[in-house]
Nucleic acid binder design. Sequence first.
DNA 1: GCATAAGTTAACCATATGGTTAAACCATAA
DNA 2: TTATGGTTTAACCATATGGTTAACTTATGC
Lengths: 199, 199
Amino acid sequence: MDSSTEDKIYLAARRIFVLKGMEGARMQEIADEAGMNKALLHYYFRSKENLFKAVFKDIFTKFFSKVKDTLFSNITSKDKLVVFIDSYIDLISSNPYVPQFIINEINRDPKVLKTLMFESGIEPQKILELFFNEVKLENSSEVDSRHIVISLMGMLVFPFVARPLLQMIYFNNDSETYDHFLKERKEVVKNMIFKLIEA
Amino acid sequence: MDSSTEDKIYLAARRIFVLKGMEGARMQEIADEAGMNKALLHYYFRSKENLFKAVFKDIFTKFFSKVKDTLFSNITSKDKLVVFIDSYIDLISSNPYVPQFIINEINRDPKVLKTLMFESGIEPQKILELFFNEVKLENSSEVDSRHIVISLMGMLVFPFVARPLLQMIYFNNDSETYDHFLKERKEVVKNMIFKLIEA
DNA sequence: GCATAAGTTAACCATATGGTTAAACCATAA
DNA sequence: TTATGGTTTAACCATATGGTTAACTTATGC
């Protein structure tokens, strides 16, 4: 039952780290969440830092791997954009705290990103570059495609990370209305991007 | 020199909290930054929580007050958008960690936002609503103006908060090139928004 | 100048935190 | 059954952390 204990700890750690971040998470809290004795965290992962890195690496690579198949498929670049946007809104909707977790941690400790890119076979980087190329192929505007890509990312991520503020101010703090807004956003963001890339 | 000591502590706290967040900041570190004995932090602000709230409130209200004069001026809505975008890219450029600080803290503790909105005379909310109205006036598209506003915010903020990742992947980790990209962005975001709001 | 209030310091406090340790427990093989 | 290796536990450890305290220093008012 070795991997079962390790998995339980990992899953608990993932949940707590995503919600609280490296600084806010407590080993005892993770142990409680896993239903394990705190010493086991050190037995299996040796330190808080190691545990965190395992979690961050997993989350980071999975976050960007979701569209790998899409990017390597034979559909048109335009259709890839569509699938990409749909996929990511769904993905973030079901893991709403993950973008904020990633952004917070890469700002808190930029070295974690460098280390990760070096260790992870550079796959997330490759995926982001492939994605960039798809956008570039479709971009008929005069604008540097990096502006398009980064704007698209901002449009996808921001409604989630800034949710507490935006929901309060523009949606009367009504969670259901905001959820509905997020669903609408699939079509809206697609239309926006296509508008931005046209000549 | 009462206010001078208090100010020194406040300024130090602001710097450390913005960089480290509430969870990551240490009172001893703030005291060291201020060149003061740690007990003074409690003497003047009573607790870490109080000190943090003072800082957060100040930063939050100032962040949104920057365009107050613009919003109340007599220029056209379209020109207001232009000034708004210019102002915010400049503001964020000179305080690059502030958006991330705000986003992180409103996610870490959403109650801080509720309390703040109640205490601060609701000014940031009013400003965001006024801004929304200006966008709505200019929006000839079929799209709900909230989508436009939120997309604009995402476009303004995201390049800063995700800088470590974006710079590494799309800019060969060259800081100067990224800074140049950010400067370009003033014109680019304006053009993008005008494209999005046209019929 | 004196009394008092406000500001400052160094030492201290109670608890939290990540981590360690030795013993107990469990599973398996001989 | 015993030996062995792996897993788990409860207790413990050293340091960090936010906060307190009493003594000292400085500023202020009369």
